[in-house]
Design a protein around this nucleic acid. Sequence first.
DNA 1: ATCAATAAAGTTAGCGATTAAGTTACTGTT
DNA 2: AACAGTAACTTAATCGCTAACTTTATTGAT
Lengths: 343, 343
Amino acid sequence: MVNKSVRLSDIAERLNVSTVTVSKALRNHPDISPQTKKIISDVAAEMGYTPNFMARNLSSRKSNTIGIVVPKIAHFFFGSIIESIYNIAFKNNYEIILTVSQEDAEIERKHIQTLLSMRVDGIIISITQETKDYSIFETVKSRGVPIVFMDRIPQIPNIDTVFVDDRGGAFKAVEHAIKLGYKKIAHFAGYTEINIGQLRYLGFEDAMKKYNLPVNKDWVCRGGFGEKYGYESFMKLYRENNLPDLIFTVTYPVALGIYMAASELNLKIPNDIDVICFGDAKVQKFLSPPLSCITQPTNLIAEKSMEILLEKINKTEEITYKSIEIPTELMLRGTCINFNKKK
Amino acid sequence: MVNKSVRLSDIAERLNVSTVTVSKALRNHPDISPQTKKIISDVAAEMGYTPNFMARNLSSRKSNTIGIVVPKIAHFFFGSIIESIYNIAFKNNYEIILTVSQEDAEIERKHIQTLLSMRVDGIIISITQETKDYSIFETVKSRGVPIVFMDRIPQIPNIDTVFVDDRGGAFKAVEHAIKLGYKKIAHFAGYTEINIGQLRYLGFEDAMKKYNLPVNKDWVCRGGFGEKYGYESFMKLYRENNLPDLIFTVTYPVALGIYMAASELNLKIPNDIDVICFGDAKVQKFLSPPLSCITQPTNLIAEKSMEILLEKINKTEEITYKSIEIPTELMLRGTCINFNKKK
DNA sequence: ATCAATAAAGTTAGCGATTAAGTTACTGTT
DNA sequence: AACAGTAACTTAATCGCTAACTTTATTGAT
């Protein structure tokens, strides 16, 4: 026994009023008297009325929906950001359409297309490692749909962005290491084509230069942002018998890869090889030794992104663009706290 | 310069055909000749046509959208499941509306309401720890919207469910420990009001009974599924000077809490206190020692849930309900591999 | 040559809401 | 008494698209 869902007109018919009266009453429109409102909303509740999103959005030309595009979600950083965005959206009466590009530019493109199809009121996106064709963003812009780029941002002018102080954060980590006494410092840099990779690399370089330390090419490894890359890069250096004293990694999964490799090779962290990474995650403090890092306040990133987006959605007149940099902090735990000379 | 988005009628006008012809052509309807289709889709692409989801769905009374409700997402288990569901949905041309209840039954209720509003074609849900009022699920059912309960499932008849063999898995872990020689075994059980908590507890009890070991009330702690609970419960036992030899935890974050507490107290795992948990997560192998566990194949859970849901969506006639149990495995790493007598 | 069958469109009528533009009936002002 | 003003509704017109018919050629079988 499937109840066809109740429509405004069903309520209207039963109460012998017009559909519009019911619509207005339920939206608390001043045209309707308090008594009528009361009666209508009572009956609506009794009949189990659920407004039809599609119809409402189609006729009002607003979707009250925000689209999100992230490269992945089974990952602390994005998971937390999404959760925060979610909460803020909820408070502001917006729905979230979450899409995951899986680091695939083609999928990303399709998702954005879908979001446009759904007529979302705005989009928050963190682009994939490989996104190079930015034309889709032009399309979004030309449709008048506000879009905020977060964390991973394309190199194009006139966009709203919220990003972490990657360069400064990386600098902070490496400078700290140098001050401890480290000189043989490697950097597992991930993808340096994308802003976060490039800037973290530059921050690393800044620090090395400032203290007149040479940047050893063999110790700047590129590849990916995941565990596998960290594991393999470390193994490679080990095989070449060319291990540094400390490795600064572009993300924490990369550091995890090092932990795994070191454990296999029976090397002790931080004594045989020391590590510090960019990016915080709850598990780091459970590692042995607890992994030190540069924190990225995910809640701030989410807050600022939503703030900008909601502003854009609500006022269409002035077209200014904001770039907000989120500060980082050095979080010292069990690594990179002493200089450990290799024996 | 905001381009109002292109409509079917804009394309129709330009080509001097009817709107319906364009609609059919773009949906590859056999009514339209190949040549016409080609012309229309070329022009549509050129004009940058994006179908209006709302209008399409309203008119066709199908949304091609699946709603998901989970308690949280910044968590490996749910994160992976969502990612898998996402992929399957994508392949089958469905969109996902993801909602997060944050373990709050009230929020959960609202989300389900919203999903109904959006006229999703089906729902996959993992309920909150505290969901007790199941009336909303009746509403969903009476609306004819297929719903699949996954992992955390309510105790009501005639529903489709996909769940892990919690009792058997827990039994497996505890039996393994007992066979190693452990007798003083505690269980940090989380919330035993919800199926997963209760069944894992029962599995623990089964094993203890089978080997004639007493279940010590002080060693069965209840509270939550998170790190904090693990930490606090462990500290409490420690203060009472009542530590067991091994603790079987209901989730891996609870085990993480124990790792943290042990590290603070300078107790060595697995020698001073041994641990094994229910639930796998990528990070476990990076812990020191790597944490042994009962695995829950998240991809299987996702696959089966989607399989059932899609089936339900596609055939409305027969009303049968499926309950699928996903098997678990014992994954031994660095804990619970030897019997460590407390000194 | 006639008629049924098919191909390839075109027409009509909503889907379930909302916005904008009327109606009434009543109130109060001068 | 006449008229403007307002409160509380109603009517009409879409929103952009699709399902279900209907129409018009064109083809082939008899």
